Amino acid sequence: MPTLFRPCIDLHAGSVKQIVGGTLSDSTDPAIASTLQTNHTSEHPASYFSLLYKKHNLLGAHVIMLGPGNDAAAYEALAAWPGKLQVGGGITERNAADWIGAGAEKVIITSALFPNASFSMDKLQSILSVVPVSQLVIDLSCRRRPSTDGWVVATNKWQTLTDFEITKENIQLLEQHCSEFLIHAADNEGLQRGIDEELVTRLGEWCSIPVTYAGGGRHVGDLELVQKLSKGRVDLTIGSALDVFGGNGVTLDECVQWNKRQLTERNEI
């Protein structure tokens, strides 16, 4: 399989935004909230991007709700291209089926699996009681653990470090319970300083189901780099550097053309 470009719609306070991931917070303290770094706030509604991705047949897009106040925008995005978008952010066993009913192709689960910063198989089974494996994406977005060479899953807008490490064994444990993984490298997210090459390499070695990496993508050359490092087993999301999100590193058309070339070479379109 080739490495493909996977699009996104990140929602914050009801708007489509690109944010430096490490600056997100749940705090209501104005001093802390003011540290949020926003790269771009779009003038377009979420549905605009759904229709744009539909036009170019960019499959596997994820709609991520970063905090409260985003439900209406997410519903709007799903309605514009029903059955083709994944949705995540605040998804639990209580609302997962509702989001599928609202038109999500798949739901993305993160924090619900890690109560008290530890992984819960019981929580995963609860979610699978309402959503089948084929419609579940597990988000293992992570940060590097201080003083180590590894990564741990980060929840609650990437602010809470759990005790769940990104390892081959843990990947193998989870991939039998979901259809794919979404993994943001939160330390790289929104910075446009390059991808976490070691993480991408490990994901290519460890994952046997589809996996999408996000964080630090700057230009179309990063698609080539991810393909090389992962041997085509990892897809890449580019956000802040993309022209439709105010970036100047890569155009959506370049990403569309990349996907067409990869699929054409493998006789998949």
Rank of each mutant, 00 (worst) to 15 (best):
A80C: 09
L51N: 13
S118V: 15
W206H: 10
I91E: 00
N170C: 08
Q172A: 12
S25K: 07
L173C: 08
K168R: 13
P30C: 05
L182T: 10
E43Y: 00
T264A: 15
V20C: 05
D139V: 04
H12T: 08
V256M: 07
L51F: 00
G221P: 10
M1H: 04
P146D: 08
A61P: 00
R202Q: 14
V234A: 02
R266D: 10
I171T: 13
I166C: 05
Q227Y: 02
D235V: 04
Q125A: 13
V63W: 01
H12L: 14
Q176P: 03
E165Y: 03
F119M: 11
T38V: 15
G217K: 01
S126D: 09
V152L: 03
T212V: 15
E224Q: 12
A214L: 02
S25N: 11
R145G: 02
I19G: 09
T28E: 01
P210R: 03
I195N: 05
I100T: 10
A154R: 03
V20H: 06
Q257A: 12
W99E: 06
G22T: 09
E189V: 05
G67M: 05
V133W: 09
T3I: 07
I19R: 01
R266V: 12
T110M: 07
H12A: 07
N170A: 04
G83D: 11
M1W: 09
S147A: 11
D163H: 04
A186W: 07
Q159K: 14
V87C: 05
L199Y: 00
V200Q: 08
P45Y: 01
N267P: 01
Q192I: 02
Q125H: 11
V152Y: 00
G101L: 10
V220T: 11
G67K: 06
F49G: 05
Q18T: 11
K55S: 11
A112F: 15
R143I: 13
L78Q: 00
I64C: 01
A185T: 02
G216M: 04
L174G: 00
E180Y: 02
I127P: 10
A72T: 14
Q227W: 02
T237H: 01
E180A: 15
T92E: 04
